[in-house]
């Protein structure tokens, strides 16, 4: 079945590339020292490419939001509050236990349900909570004069930076888990093929 239109695939591949660049450059900035000035890519180069990549990431995020609003792809990101927790737990139980017992997929993919409840929940957290916080805090670090000096006695810059690196870390963890869960399709590389061709094989039944 055709699940991923061209614009989604284009957005996804750009997003993936930029996120990887941002993670590498972010780690470079945080851990480069005088003694290991060339760590990963060095501080100044890391700053430059982090800023450039972040600018493109923001543009790509706007593209994603507009695309979702215009094409109706946004409906896949609406969280039904009814049975939310129980559906998530059902999906989690399937990944952690049922899959190994040969149980049927509790929420097989179809054109009306592109994401299972656990996917939907994590994607909403990533794209509509972590991403905006990452972008806003990143803007604050790029233009520190816009950040309030003190917030309840703590430096605004420290809070902004902690928020930024925390969101960056959460999205890094998301990336690792996302890549791994993408191997849980009908075959190991089914989902990877889907996001390139747009066509998804049915989940294992």
């Amino acid at each position: 079945m055709y699940l991923y239109p061209k614009w989604v695939r284009l957005w996804h591949v750009i997003n993936a590339f930029l996120i990887i660049v941002l993670i590498i450059t972010g780690i470079s900035m945080q851990y480069t020292d005088r003694e290991n000035a060339a760590y990963l890519m060095g501080f100044s180069r890391a700053v430059k490419w982090h800023n450039i990549s972040a600018s493109f990431l923001v543009a790509n995020y706007v593209f994603f939001i507009l695309g979702n609003a215009i094409t109706g792809n946004g409906r896949y990101y609406k969280l039904p509050l009814k049975n939310l927790i129980s559906d998530i737990m059902t999906q989690f139980r399937y990944y952690a236990y049922g899959k190994f017992r040969g149980e049927k997929h509790p929420f097989p993919v179809n054109t009306e349900r592109k994401f299972n409840p656990l996917q939907r929940f994590t994607y909403v957290l990533a794209m509509y909570v972590a991403f905006p916080l990452l972008i806003i805090s990143g803007f604050g670090l790029l233009f520190p004069e816009t950040v309030i000096n003190r917030f309840f006695g703590v430096s605004g810059l420290i809070l902004t930076d902690i928020l930024h690196i925390s969101m960056g870390f959460c999205l890094s963890i998301f990336l690792v888990v996302h890549i791994y869960t993408c191997t849980l399709g009908a075959k190991t590389f089914s989902h990877f093929r889907s996001i390139i061709t747009g066509y998804q094989e049915p989940d294992e039944q």
Partner: peptide, 10 residues
Amino acid sequence: GCNECHSKNS
């Protein structure tokens, strides 16, 4: 060099 300040041993 940025790392002269932006490092653990600033």
